[in-house]
C-alpha cells in the first residue's frame, strides 16, 4: 500500500532545496488568495501545472482527482445555491453565483495542487530537515516526520485487526454507509491501543540510540541553497511583488 505522494524522480524540481519549494508553495497560496479574477486564476493554474510538469509530479493528480473534483463540484453547487447575484437562471441559482463557485473551486484546487507538487517532489526527511533549517526545533520536526511515517503503519494495523475480526464472523460489508461506519468504530479502539502500547519501548529505543544527547545534531542528509534555488526564489518573490502591485497599487 503506497500512501505517500513522493515520486522518486531525478528532476530540477526534486533537486531544489526544500526551503525553496516551501517558498514557492507559499507564493502560490498568496497569489491564489489575492485574486478573484477567473483569468488570473487560470494563468496561475497554468504556471503551477508547468511547475509540476518540470518535476514530473502531475501523475499524482490521478491520486487526488476525487478530492479535487469533489471540492470543485461542491464549491460550484454550494455558491450557485447561496451566493445570490444576477441574472437569475433557475430558482436561487444565478450566473454570478455559478461563476463565483467556479472561481473559488479553482482557487482551492490550485492551492491543493501546489501542496501536492511539494509533497511529490520532497522526501519526508527533506521536509523535516528543511523545517530544522528554518529553526523549527529538532524534536518537533522529528515528531512530525515520525508521525508521517506512522500513518501507513497504523492503517496496516487497522487492516490486520479488521481481517482478524472478519475471520471471527464480523460482517463489515452489509448495511448502509452509516451502519457500516458504525461497525468500523469498535475497530478503532484496538488499533489505538496497539499503537499506544509501544510508547515505552519506542522511547527507550530512541534514548538507547542517543536521542536528545545533544542539541546540535549532525545529519547524514545535507541540503543547501544552490544557484537554481536562488533563481527560483527570485522568481517567486518577483511574482509575489507583481501580484501585490496589481492587487493593491493599480
Amino acid at each position: 500500500m503506497e500512501m505517500f505522494l513522493y515520486l522518486d524522480n531525478d528532476t530540477f524540481l526534486h533537486r531544489l532545496d526544500p526551503r525553496t519549494k516551501m517558498l514557492v508553495m507559499l507564493a502560490t497560496f498568496v497569489v491564489a488568495l489575492m485574486f478573484y479574477s477567473l483569468n488570473t486564476l487560470l494563468i496561475l493554474s497554468a504556471v503551477v501545472l508547468i511547475y509540476g510538469l518540470v518535476g514530473k509530479t502531475l501523475s499524482n493528480l490521478k491520486r487526488i482527482r476525487f478530492i479535487l473534483l469533489m471540492i470543485f463540484l461542491f464549491s460550484v453547487v454550494l455558491w450557485s445555491l447561496t451566493y445570490g447575484g444576477e441574472p437569475k437562471l433557475l430558482g436561487p441559482i444565478s450566473l454570478e453565483g455559478i461563476l463565483y463557485g467556479i472561481v473559488i473551486g479553482i482557487k482551492f484546487d490550485i492551492m491543493i495542487i501546489a501542496g501536492m507538487i511539494f509533497l511529490s517532489s520532497t522526501k519526508v526527511e527533506e521536509i523535516s530537515l528543511g523545517l530544522v533549517k528554518i529553526k523549527v526545533p529538532y524534536r518537533g520536526a522529528f515528531a512530525f516526520a515520525t508521525a508521517i511515517r506512522m500513518v501507513p503503519m497504523i492503517v496496516a494495523t487497522s487492516y490486520t485487526i479488521s481481517q482478524a475480526q472478519r475471520s471471527r464472523g464480523l460482517d463489515l460489508d452489509s448495511g448502509n454507509l452509516v451502519e457500516r461506519a458504525k461497525k468500523y468504530i469498535p475497530l478503532l479502539i484496538p488499533t489505538i491501543i496497539s499503537v499506544i502500547r509501544g510508547t515505552n519501548v519506542f522511547a527507550m529505543a530512541l534514548e538507547s540510540k542517543g536521542f536528545g544527547y545533544s542539541e546540535d545534531r549532525t545529519n547524514y542528509l545535507q541540503i543547501s541553497i544552490k544557484k537554481g534555488d536562488l533563481l527560483v526564489i527570485f522568481m517567486a518573490l518577483v511574482v509575489i511583488a507583481i501580484s501585490v502591485y496589481y492587487r493593491f497599487i493599480i
Partner: peptide, 20 residues
C-alpha cells in the same frame, strides 16, 4: 519536549489522528 516519552506520544497521537 524535553521528555522523550512525550515526544513519542506527540508522534503517535499525530499519526493516529491523521490516519483516521
Amino acid at each position: 519536549w524535553k521528555d522523550t516519552k512525550m515526544v513519542v506520544l506527540v508522534a503517535l497521537s499525530a499519526g493516529i489522528y491523521a490516519a483516521v
